[in-house]
């Protein structure tokens, strides 16, 4: 990998607002270090944030705070997550391997990069890696690519499972920006590729995620995280669905559906969910919700199957959430 300058950040460093601007943060390193070996990421300077005090998971009156440096494993197995936010527990445990989950952090999970074959291979054109070089996936292999919110320059997906559950739970992300705290709703963190696929998210250089806040409602009774992939473990989602329901007398009181593996960000449409509040919790309505949620879906050849698959997965996930086994 390209030689780089390495510094270890302490809390004191966070008060100066310029120090962080030009550095790449290193937390668990499970994605960044790989990308550096492949020559996909070539930072000149690395700031190791591993010593910063953001590894706590804390319950508070309005919900739960997940430290950005808490590991995926510690988060998934935390009693409050297991009991109150089981959809998050299930999503995290469906991802990667236990070794990776022991190392990977929550903040890093949000900022992991796409698994597009062409993004990973520096010999290939890729607008995300090298803006303006073209997209080889649109007419190439796109089995793992997006069907929603794509652009002519990029059809990559966000690979996280955890983020799909966080989107469904409508988490908030706390960010340290130039010494001040900024709170961003989860659906504003990631972005669609548009003409700038090189930008995965709306964070600015130097922004540091400190923790993720989960609101009180955890949908612990009626939830599902359904992940469909090419093997039973250790594979990224072709399609995943985080489904959360609150049901009273057969009627939907609240519903959340977030999709993974289909777009450049976890896919969730608040207005579609709203439409179904007060309606009967039935397969028929779930089908209708699915249709509306993926309206405009477009395949690129080898990923065409995702369109029928994601509809069926949404219905299955909602039914499983409705009738927990």
């Amino acid at each position: 990998m390209k030689p780089f300058e390495y510094t270890r950040l302490s809390t004191d460093d966070l008060s100066s607002d310029t120090a962080l601007y030009d550095t790449t943060f290193l937390a668990g390193g499970t994605n960044l270090v790989d990308l550096m070996k492949y020559g996909v990421e070539k930072p000149d300077a690395i700031a190791d944030i591993g010593q910063l005090p953001y590894d706590q998971i804390e319950e508070f009156a309005d919900g739960l705070r997940l430290g950005a440096l808490a590991t995926n494993a510690d988060t998934a197995y935390h009693p409050a997550v297991k009991n109150k936010y089981p959809v998050l527990n299930k999503a995290i445990l469906s991802a990667a391997s236990s070794q990776l989950r022991n190392r990977a952090t929550n903040g890093g999970n949000l900022l992991q990069r796409t698994r597009c074959y062409y993004f990973y291979d520096t010999a290939m054109p890729c607008n995300k890696r090298e803006p303006g070089s073209g997209c080889a996936a649109i007419k190439g292999f796109n089995r793992i690519h997006a069907i929603l919110g794509t652009s002519a320059s990029c059809i990559a997906t966000h690979p996280s499972d955890m983020c799909v559950a966080l989107a469904a739970l409508e988490a908030k992300v706390h960010i340290l920006r130039k010494g001040a705290t900024l709170v961003m709703p989860f659906d504003q963190i990631h972005r669609l590729p548009g003409e700038h696929p090189e930008k995965d998210h709306n964070l600015e250089p130097g922004d540091l995620i400190t923790h993720i806040e989960l609101p009180n409602e955890g949908f612990s009774q009626n939830f599902e995280y359904l992940k469909i992939r090419d093997r039973e473990s250790y594979a990224f989602a072709l399609v995943s669905v985080a489904a959360c329901l609150k049901v009273s007398a057969g009627k939907i009181e609240d519903v959340r559906v977030a999709l993974g593996g289909v777009a450049h960000k976890p896919w969730k449409l608040k207005e579609v969910e709203h439409e179904f509040i007060g309606k009967e919790a039935s397969t028929e309505n779930f089908k209708s919700l699915a249709e509306k949620l993926i309206k405009g879906a477009q395949g690129f050849g080898t990923n065409n199957f995702k369109i029928p698959l994601v509809k069926r997965a949404i219905v299955r996930a909602l039914n499983n959430a409705l009738n927990p086994s």
Binding site: Y117, Y118, A123, M124, A136, G140
Partner: peptide, 8 residues
């Protein structure tokens, strides 16, 4: 890959 002949 059918265009580049490269294992992806």
């Amino acid at each position: 890959d059918s265009k580049y002949g490269r294992i992806m």
